[in-house]
Amino acid sequence: MARRHVSTRVNGEPVEFLCEPHQTLLDVLRDELQLTGTKEGCGTGDCGACSVMLDGRLICSCLALAAEVEGAEVRTVEGIASGNELHPLQRHFLEEAALQCGICTPGFLVAAKALLDGNPDPTEREVRFALAGNLCRCTGYDKIIRAVLDSAAELRGEA
């Protein structure tokens, strides 16, 4: 089967790649574009480790075909910081020990950013439901939820 040519933008940069029609966005990010920050935990959309933003919408990149991102804007964990300045979420995850093994962290950061982009003042319950599609097996979520709430407060200028 012929490979498809795709033009897109990833983390603000124009990107072109060739992909098999069946290849997922996750596989192309990881294997073709060497953006291995996006992780595969299940391949079935159940764990959220592969979360990315596609045109401002949070998706599991394991459930999207690479060919679908023609002309789109993809943002991955590698594109969350502004240059060398960490996003407040990244800083709070570090300062509040919201990661242990760290494999789920990229997905949580992307999903939390998607939440805060749309809801700058979420309640704890709203954070818990917004992140319910991201599995973490190490932390029990406590420190993740606190880091997201504290990031939200900082982004609102309250901290």
Binding site: R30, L35, T36, G37, T38, K39, E40, T76, V77, E78, I80, A81, L86, Q90, F93, L94, L99, G102, I103, T105, P106, L109
Partner: peptide, 10 residues
């Protein structure tokens, strides 16, 4: 680990 640069098994 928060920047997506840490190298895991895969």
């Amino acid at each position: 680990k928060v920047r997506g640069r840490a190298n895991y098994g895969a």
